[in-house]
Amino acid sequence: MLGEGIIKGMGETARNFFGSYVKEDRLTTVQYPEERLPQKEAARNFPFLVYDGKDWDKGLRCVACQICEKECPPQCIYIVKDATKKPDHIGKMQFQAKVFDIDISVCMSCQICVEVCPFEAIKMDVEYELSTGDRFGQLLLHKDQLAKSNDYYRKIHPTEAAEVDARMGAEKAKAEAKAKPAAATSATPSKP
């Protein structure tokens, strides 16, 4: 019969329509911004710089090695090395960045900077409400805007942060273990 297929189809839409009143899985709309979906742990948006301790400038893990600057596909990271050094988490003297800018209007959230950084210094943020009235200035993030604490990192990516903490803790313990005999030998001069 002509029209049978259409009636059958209408039956499906009716089932979906009335189903949306009684069944959760047929009603999938979320009323943003009043309701929000939970963030996925792996979610990523734009990078930020991790710092340890209280003082963000002293605690920044970045050693200005500029690997991320080189590997970033759209070249949106800009780094200037500082002449002075500061100790890193294992107490080794390292360079630091005088300028560290990321132009998030260019950044494509690819996470390659995070993967290539050997110092666990740059990680992906999950913040997404970033609209501004200024296209250029406010989307160019400077070092102070990029710096976020390790606690924040632990909050947004708990599993990943726990792995990083464990790795860095192990490095620190190893360095301390190595430093002790070294300190002991330097304390007792070996010269006869």
Partner: peptide, 14 residues
């Protein structure tokens, strides 16, 4: 199944 029931035999689509 729903998608096919909705469309496959729909006279307008055909």
């Amino acid at each position: 199944d729903e998608f096919e029931a909705l469309l496959n035999e729909n006279e307008i689509l055909m």
